[in-house]
């Protein structure tokens, strides 16, 4: 228990430092970016007809005539009160946009995460147990190919094959068109999730499979594997009794750390499939110079990635008996 309190306090301190750094950096980057907040607010059509007086009035009302430091402090004050501002693209508060969008993304990422975890570790264990055989070579070739293929390209490929040629999966979106949101069935949601989730899972599969393989090969050459063999255990038995146990931790940690890549990958995947998640919102916000939403997403993604890394850290401490009981750090 004592450990958990210490861990939580130290992680919260880390998170605060991280968010402070992100706040400063984001504010600086936005203020030096070519985006003019007034232009972005009034839109392209009004920009031309607007007089300089009107422009100055808005600038004054928004405090744009104040020095950088003053603006930063006022912005930070609002941020600390939980006010992330209004999204100009969706005409909603940024918090609300992120909440609804993230829900959609969460399904996609969870499914992709689960799929890459199961598939990647299974392939890795299979390859490691048969290291050097044709099965191992095939899996390695597959993993290298997946690791080096760009996500958007795989997305397009899957779309062409499954949605255009075979027409067994929908071509876009999270729900069928022309159906009210409350009438969408679970199956329809899943049906729309399959291809995006499959694409997104590809990011994790390759590296997880290769890592798991490496680890298992190392385990099979260990002293305890040799001793198990001396006791009459078969390779399959060694993998089942000692391999899985020892491979699970590094694989799980890698999966948690991989959450950050998953978040990045979701931007491209959602764009190609027109899936209305957080990644799609990020692209929209960037195209339309929707600074409040963009900043909100930056903060959210920082917290998300931080949470992934913390979970990875925590899983080691809670699962590995050498650290949990012995307090031995590696």
């Amino acid at each position: 228990m004592n450990f958990l309190i210490r861990f939580t306090v130290s992680k919260l301190l880390h998170l605060m430092l991280l968010l402070a750094a992100v706040a400063v950096l984001t504010f600086l980057l936005v203020s030096v970016s070519p985006i003019d907040p007034i232009d972005a607010y009034v839109g392209a059509a009004r920009r031309v007809t607007m007089t300089d007086e009107q422009r100055a009035l808005i600038a004054q009302r928004w405090g744009l005539d104040q020095p950088l430091i003053t603006r930063f402090i006022r912005w930070l004050g609002q941020l600390l009160q939980g006010n992330l501002g209004e999204s100009m693209t969706y005409h909603q508060s940024v918090a609300a946009v992120i909440a609804t969008r993230f829900q959609a993304s969460l399904w996609l990422m969870a499914l992709a995460w689960l799929f890459s975890g199961v598939f990647g570790s299974t392939l890795g264990i299979l390859a490691g147990a048969t290291a050097g055989s044709w099965c191992d070579r095939l899996i390695r070739l597959y993993a290298y190919t997946l690791s080096s293929a760009p996500v958007f390209w795989i997305a397009l490929l899957l779309l062409v094959i499954f949605s255009v040629n075979w027409q067994i999966t929908p071509i876009c979106c999270a729900t069928p068109p022309g159906v009210l949101l409350q009438d969408v069935t679970l199956w329809q949601r899943l049906h729309h999730l399959i291809l995006p989730a499959l694409t997104l899972s590809v990011i994790g599969i390759g590296s997880l499979a290769l890592h798991t393989r490496e680890k298992l090969v190392e385990i099979l050459q260990s002293n305890y594997a040799l001793f198990a063999r001396a006791q009459g255990e078969t390779t399959t038995g060694i993998v089942l009794h000692h391999g899985l146990r020892n491979v699970a931790l590094p694989a799980l940690t890698l999966q948690f750390v991989g959450l950050s890549e998953l978040f990045g990958g979701s931007v491209l995947t959602e764009k190609v499939f027109g899936y209305p998640g957080l990644g799609d919102a990020t692209v929209q916000a960037a195209i339309r110079s929707d600074v409040p939403l963009l900043v909100g997403i930056v903060f959210f993604s920082a917290i998300f990635v931080f949470a992934g890394n913390t979970l990875a850290d925590l899983s080691y401490r809670l699962i590995d008996p050498r650290i949990r009981i012995g307090g031995i750090e590696r």
């Binding site: 002293n223 001793f227 146990r245 008996p321």
Partner: peptide, 14 residues
């Protein structure tokens, strides 16, 4: 049966 040299011949996680 074999009696190994050291504790490193036992599975560290079992």
């Amino acid at each position: 049966a074999l009696i190994p040299q050291s504790i490193s011949y036992l599975d560290p996680l079992m």
